[in-house]
């Protein structure tokens, strides 16, 4: 298992404020890694340092074996960045834009194929201004992957999407991951992290407060379950045993039975709350 991103003791200050304070992170080649965290937690700063947009104050950072603080164009050709707020080139068509960006890369994919991958073939001749928000983000993804990157950064890619568009977008990300591309995703949506990510890290106050798979994060898999039935409820570490007892008591179906483990959102809010 090789490492795509290796970070030790990353620190960034803005004046007196420690935006990132000694952050450690390892992201493996080929995995989908989600970074969660409230606004102002240092999430964007961290990602922008990894992308080579910002300089760090201290720490050791290696992205695809290169220090992004010394980014070369050869390194940039291996990294795809899908920005959150881009609103440019509104009067160009989708095809013109993707074709143009393909020129920047030494080993680019076929622009028309990329447009098909992101599901915009029917809109290839349309001006970007005329696209919906979801289609616009697909163009951003197309521009991020046209250079055949080994690593793609996706910054809150589905903000403002309707549910159907989000599902379609997730399929797109899954197909990218299936090709072996390493994906670093920042998002506010916990269901998105749960649906896409192999591993998740939660950043709060400039540090990683928890890291793991979406199912084990913050002790989620071993957390006590809440069992609710028609006549009562209980918090228990052994819900199966409780259900067996209840089944005997009711002699068959237990009325109103519900067993709930904490959701990723519960865990997340706990983690963020503890960090405050």
């Amino acid at each position: 298992m090789t490492t795509a991103i290796h970070v030790r003791g990353l620190t960034k200050r803005y004046g007196e404020v420690h935006a990132v304070g000694g952050l450690d992170l390892d992201i493996r080649t080929g995995e989908v890694f989600a970074i969660l965290g409230p606004n102002g937690a240092g999430k964007s700063t961290t990602v922008e340092i990894l992308e080579g947009y910002r300089k760090r104050d201290a720490g050791e950072v290696s992205v695809l074996g290169v220090d992004p603080g010394q980014a070369t164009s050869a390194w940039r050709a291996r990294v795809g960045i899908v920005l959150q707020t881009a609103n440019d080139a509104a009067e160009l068509t989708v095809r013109e834009t993707v074709r143009h960006f393909a020129r920047y890369y030494p080993n680019s994919k076929d622009p028309d194929e990329v447009i098909a991958t992101v599901g915009l073939s029917e809109k290839a001749g349309a001006r970007i201004r005329q696209l919906s928000g979801g289609q616009r983000r697909r163009v951003d993804v197309a521009l991020g992957i046209v250079g055949r990157p080994e690593l793609v950064f996706l910054d809150e890619p589905t903000t403002g999407f309707d549910p159907e568009a989000r599902r379609q977008f997730w399929d797109l990300i899954r197909s990218l991951a299936a090709e072996g591309t390493t994906i670093v995703l920042t998002t506010h949506y916990l269901d998105e992290a749960e649906a896409l990510a192999d591993r998740v890290a939660v950043i709060a106050k400039g540090r990683i407060v928890a890291e793991g798979t979406p199912h084990t994060l913050g002790g989620r898999a071993t957390a006590s379950a809440r069992v609710t039935w028609a006549d009562g409820y209980a918090e228990t570490d052994t819900p199966t045993a409780l259900v067996r007892t209840l089944a005997e008591k009711y002699d068959g179906e237990i009325p109103g039975l519900q067993i709930v483990r904490p959701s990723l959102e519960d865990i997340y809010l706990d983690l963020i709350g503890d960090a405050e």
């Binding site: 947009y53 164009s73 050709a77 960045i81 920005l83 881009a86 440019d88 920047y104």
Partner: peptide
């Protein structure tokens, strides 16, 4: 405008000279 609407940031993230 390029600086404001993300054109420059996007370009800076590509290998474009």
């Amino acid at each position: 405008i390029d600086r404001d609407d993300g054109t420059l940031k996007r370009l800076a993230g590509t290998p474009m000279p």
